[in-house]
Design a protein around this nucleic acid. Structure first.
Lengths: 296, 296
DNA sequence: AATTCTTCATAAGATGAAGTTATCGTAACA
DNA sequence: TGTTACGATAACTTCATCTTATGAAGAATT
């Protein structure tokens, strides 16, 4: 006993509508015998007749009528499926899960989300904020689609696309505004407040100052840039923040912000995703949106 | 660009569930390449990928997930369609439209409907009560499925099945109970009340008395047997009714009921339906139920 | 009553879709 | 650096489906 096919349902629907094999076959762009055979096979596979044939009319049986109702619903759902696919074709669709590291998230997301909302109003954006290694794990097992981090991450199974470079700037207590900007080496001698272990921004700051990361440091690590800046405002030390954070953090405490002279320290912000993700092309478009959001 | 098939949806569902081409193919009882090809064609026909393939996992894309939801619904509806067919296979199903002539309906239907309810509780029985020629018309253009009438009707495109024979009996005013039962010829001289034009029972009565149907008669035709019997009860004349009507009409007025002696007049009650109706076999079973209901 | 028309069913052959086995390429793993 | 696991691809086979041609049967026509 063979199986029901969508084709048969389509043919059936046409015949139910036209009540005439020839015209229904025309409507389906097939020959009349082809339709006859398919209807016959449909009836056989159901084990019960759908039509009453007489030389004059072709009429649905009572069962045929119930069948027609449901068949139409099904065909419609299938067509909607096609519609849905057409709508989704080649664009971001449905749920998009973005991971962002904490030294970027608060400064980038407000703009990014409003831009995304504008470009893809139907998109369901989820945000995950955590440190790079964890983002990479979650990327790896499919919990998120893309991540915005500091490059490089150098995972061979990932695509990484640079978005923009960004300087790191010095934050001192406002009382020190007149003092000259210290060199990296001078900085090493100062009380430099850093994010806790795990944040890549901490490592970048340390490497700028040529400090061995292995050496244990005094217990003054903050859990967010915001915390660090507040501590600087309280006169406890100095810290580094990315340019992006200036508009927010530079006003939030009695501090002054200065660029370094000479070779400025910087980080590259970029987006990463699984190479195997078939939405790669759409992600390129996403990069453009993120870039726009990252501009001050 | 080819068309979506149910097969593809089934394969897709399996792959979404197993996340593994080999195992999904097993589940579908086909080879892995066959599955690969079908999934590929499905994705191509949709114009957008459904899965992200990596050597480790096969994962649904975000679009794939929405697609899977709807696909499952569709597959389920299709299976229900099969279920429905299996339930309906070879039995009366859904709506059954029965036509009955007025000289049978009130005496047969109460029993018939309760028997039908018992045998086919899910059956949706519709009743149409009118005279034979009209029933034949309605049968012809599919407004009813079967009709219960007096045979023969002799339409070549119909099947007619006799159900039972039934005598016609004489109804007189109770004051005449002691008088002998008149012969047909004697009857002709009496005031014989008949149904109005169009009822076959009228013609049967006339032919029993050898009265020319063409001859116009006094304007005393009733629109139902019940009316006729009430008139007899009022002493206006005599009438004939079928046996079946005795239990109801014999008690409803001051009348007496007598069988004719010698050759009793009778009619054959039978069921008719379009020869082309594929439910013919089920209708035979229906005949049995009607026969049972017709027994006193 | 014979004939023609209409319409659906059936048959035979052609075409196309879908399945099979065999094999390859690639990334992960030891 | 082989080895393994897995999906993609290719060549071929099988089966489903379509087309054209034809048959059968009732309705309409003459």
């Amino acid at each position: 006993m063979k199986n029901l096919t969508l084709k048969q349902l389509r043919y059936f629907e046409a015949l139910a509508r036209h009540g005439h094999f020839g015209r229904a076959a025309d409507a389906c762009s097939i020959s009349q015998p082809a339709l006859s055979v398919q209807i016959k096979e449909l009836e056989e596979s159901l084990g019960t007749p759908l039509f009453e044939r007489s030389p004059r009319h072709v009429r649905l049986t009572s069962f045929g009528e119930s069948f027609a109702g449901r068949a139409r619903t099904i065909l419609q759902s299938v067509d909607e499926l096609g519609e849905m696919a057409r709508a989704a074709r080649g664009r971001l669709y449905g749920r998009l899960r973005i991971g962002v590291i904490p030294t970027i998230a608060p400064y980038l997301l407000p703009k990014l989300i409003s831009h995304l909302d504008e470009a893809h109003p139907e998109l369901d954006v989820h945000i995950r904020e955590t440190v790079t290694p964890r983002l990479i794990d979650e990327l790896s097992d499919g919990q998120i689609d893309v991540a915005i981090v500091a490059l490089p991450v150098s995972e061979p199974w990932m695509t990484e696309v640079p978005l923009f470079d960004e300087s790191m700037v010095l934050v001192r207590h406002e009382s020190q505004a007149e003092l000259p900007v210290p060199s990296p080496d001078a900085l090493r001698a100062m009380r430099l407040l850093l994010l806790e272990e795990g944040h890549c921004f901490r490592d970048q700051a340390l490497s700028f100052c040529n400090i061995q990361t292995a050496v244990p440091r005094e217990g003054l690590d903050g859990s967010s840039l915001s915390t660090l800046v507040q501590m600087v405002g309280a006169g406890i030390g100095v810290t580094l923040i990315p340019e992006m954070a200036i508009p927010v953090e530079g006003r939030a405490a009695p501090v002054c912000v200065d660029r370094f002279t000479g070779k400025e320290p910087s980080r590259t912000v970029g987006m990463i995703w699984r190479k195997t993700n078939p939405l790669a092309h759409q992600f390129d478009a996403l990069c453009d949106i993120v870039r726009k959001s990252g501009q001050l």
